[in-house]
Amino acid sequence: MHGADAESFELVVRSAGEQSSLRLREAPGARAAVERAVSQAAALRAAAPEPSTFARHLGAQLSRAPDPMRALERLHARDLALALSCAQGLPAACALLEQEVLLKLRVPLSRIHPSPAFADEVLQVLRANLLMPREEAPSRLLGYSGMGPLLHWVSISAVRLALRMRKAQGEESHVEAEVLAAHPAPGGLELGFVREEARGHVRAAFIRAVASLDDEDRELLRLHFVERLSLERMGALFDLHKSTLSRRLSAVQTLLEKRTRRALAERLSLPEPEVDSLMRAIHGRLDLSLSGLLAVRE
């Protein structure tokens, strides 16, 4: 490791806290992982933060990770550097955030309200929330840890903001993935049956799974979990026997679990046994998650 890389590693380690620094110094691949992260940050060129500032910021994030070496291996370093540069108000970084993140939010926002004007309004408020300086408080972008794509992290904020804006306008929405994520309630995904650091990722994976359902399946969920219709009444609506409808609902929930697992595996890049462990914790609770999350709106 040449001088600049060695200096970056030392800055990261010194900023990571005593316990994490010891683990990083002992880990065989830590220096190479830091070198990769610094290189990815530098690839932003005009949008890159100052290297020593990025190294200290990275160390601070690793100090909060249960396993700093694993966090380094899973790090989205370029996204972490971009968020840091935006928090510092670097114009090139803010322009890149607009192009790579904010403009891509129109699709999920359109699921909440089809009007382009509504998406424009949400994005305008979101830009202010993320990029405008706050008195006596750090930039919200400094809260991004780099443990998942920046696009996903910002999209959760955008969806929650959009739902609050629709609620303020007195508008109700159907069973949509965003609703499930934005309104946790007792019995839902916010329970302690998943590790603290994984809850947000599980919730985001669940969002993606529900969003992938077709309109009829989501309507089945709405009638069952929001309207509380009996299987007999739902069967009359869909011209199906209640036993057939019961199997259909079970199949939708099984599909939700399968797609949540797939999205979780992609999002966290975890070994298969660890994903299996998280899914065992979720198994059998998706019905509680749906009813509990939606009960808040009733």
Rank of each mutant, 00 (worst) to 15 (best):
A185W: 06
M132L: 09
E35S: 14
A168S: 12
I207F: 08
P138W: 05
S155Y: 07
D215E: 15
D239H: 09
M1P: 08
R261Y: 03
L150A: 10
G17C: 07
G200E: 15
E196K: 08
L151V: 06
H57K: 02
V179K: 04
P51C: 10
F54N: 02
M279T: 03
A93W: 00
F206W: 09
F118T: 00
E232C: 01
L231T: 07
A87L: 10
R280Y: 08
A60N: 11
R36Y: 13
S15V: 10
R127K: 15
R297Y: 05
L189M: 10
H174E: 12
A77K: 08
L11E: 10
S230I: 01
A236R: 11
V159G: 05
L237D: 11
P28A: 14
E196Y: 07
D239L: 08
L264M: 07
F118A: 01
P66I: 08
E178H: 15
E196H: 08
L220T: 04
Q124P: 00
L180R: 02
R45P: 01
S173Q: 15
C94T: 12
G200Q: 12
L180P: 06
L189K: 02
G146I: 06
H224G: 04
S15I: 10
D5N: 08
E171H: 11
L97K: 03
R208D: 15
S21G: 15
L270P: 02
V125A: 10
R259S: 11
H152A: 14
P184D: 09
A119E: 00
A48C: 06
R259N: 13
V159E: 15
A60Q: 15
A251I: 02
G170T: 05
H201V: 09
D239P: 00
R195G: 04
A95K: 05
R208F: 03
E171K: 14
A119R: 00
L290F: 15
W153N: 02
H76T: 01
A295H: 15
F9R: 02
L102N: 07
E10V: 11
D120V: 01
Q88G: 07
A182S: 15
A236I: 01
S52N: 09
A295F: 13
V38M: 12
R199L: 12
A185M: 09
L75P: 00
V38Y: 00
F225Y: 14
A77D: 10
Y144D: 07
L288C: 07
E35C: 08
R228H: 07
S157R: 08
S212L: 13
R233M: 11
A205H: 13
S15N: 14
P28M: 14
L126K: 01
P51Y: 11
H113G: 00
A6H: 00
A182T: 12
I156H: 01
E298I: 07
L75E: 05
L141W: 01
A119D: 00
L294Y: 15
A117W: 01
R25E: 05
K104I: 02
V194R: 01
S15P: 09
R134Y: 00
R23Q: 13
M234V: 04
A37D: 05
E35K: 13
Q88V: 01
D239S: 12
A37L: 02
R208V: 13
